[in-house]
C-alpha cells in the first residue's frame, strides 16, 4: 500500500475540475486521457431537503496488491518499494494493455501517442522534489490533500472511494 493517498474535502470542493486539468498539463496528456477523474453528483436533496452536491476526485489508489503489477508481462508496471507508488516504467512497456483490463477501476489508460500504458504516479517526481502532486497544489480551493497513513482521512478515503467510484462509472 502506498504511503500516501489523495483525499477530497467535500466541504471545500467546488467541482471546478482544475484537478483534472492540472494533472493533464503537468503530465502532458492528450485530449481523451485523464489520469485522475473528478466525479460530481447533484444537485440532490440533502438531509433537510436543501440541495447538495457530492464530489470525489479519484486518482489511482496505489493498491497494496496491485493487479496491474501482477499481470504486467515485462515488469514495466512497478510498485516502488520505498513508498508503494505504482507507476509505469515507460521504456519497459510493450503496450499489451493487460493492466488496462486488470485494474478494477480502469486507472491505467492507453496513450496512442507512443502506444503505451499511462497512469497516475502521484507526480512522484514532484514528491521526490519535496512538492505535492500537481492536482493537489493546483486545486482551486485547496480541497485536495496528500495525506500519509497516520492521517485519519487516509483510511476513510481508502474505504469509501473504490465503492463510490465503481458505482459512478
Amino acid at each position: 500500500m502506498s504511503t500516501y493517498c489523495i483525499v477530497t474535502d467535500e466541504r471545500r470542493c467546488i467541482s471546478c475540475k482544475a484537478c483534472e486539468v492540472h494533472c493533464k498539463v503537468k503530465n502532458a496528456m492528450p485530449v481523451g486521457i485523464k489520469l485522475g477523474e473528478h466525479f460530481t453528483e447533484g444537485p440532490v436533496p440533502g438531509p433537510n431537503g436543501a440541495p447538495l452536491y457530492r464530489t470525489l476526485y479519484m486518482p489511482c489508489f496505489h493498491c497494496e496488491e496491485p493487479e496491474c503489477v501482477d499481470v504486467c508481462p515485462t515488469g514495466a508496471m512497478t510498485k516502488r518499494e520505498a513508498d508503494g507508488i505504482v507507476y509505469v516504467e515507460a521504456d519497459d512497456c510493450i503496450g499489451c494493455g493487460a493492466c488496462l483490463e486488470a485494474c478494477p477501476w480502469h486507472i491505467p489508460q492507453w496513450n496512442e501517442d507512443g502506444d503505451k500504458a499511462v497512469k497516475c504516479d502521484l507526480c512522484m517526481d514532484r514528491i521526490d522534489a519535496g512538492l505535492k502532486p500537481a492536482c493537489v497544489t493546483g486545486c482551486t480551493t485547496h480541497a485536495l490533500a496528500l495525506v500519509g497513513q497516520d492521517d485519519p482521512r487516509y483510511e476513510e478515503q481508502r474505504k469509501r472511494a473504490p465503492q463510490r467510484a465503481l458505482a459512478e462509472r
Binding site: 471546478c16 498539463v25 505535492k132 500537481a134 482551486t140
Partner: peptide
C-alpha cells in the same frame, strides 16, 4: 505548467 503564485494568498491554487 502554470500554478497560482505560491507567495500570494492563492498558495498554488489556480482554476482550470
Amino acid at each position: 505548467r502554470i500554478e497560482g503564485n505560491p507567495k500570494s494568498p492563492l498558495k498554488g491554487s489556480l482554476c482550470a
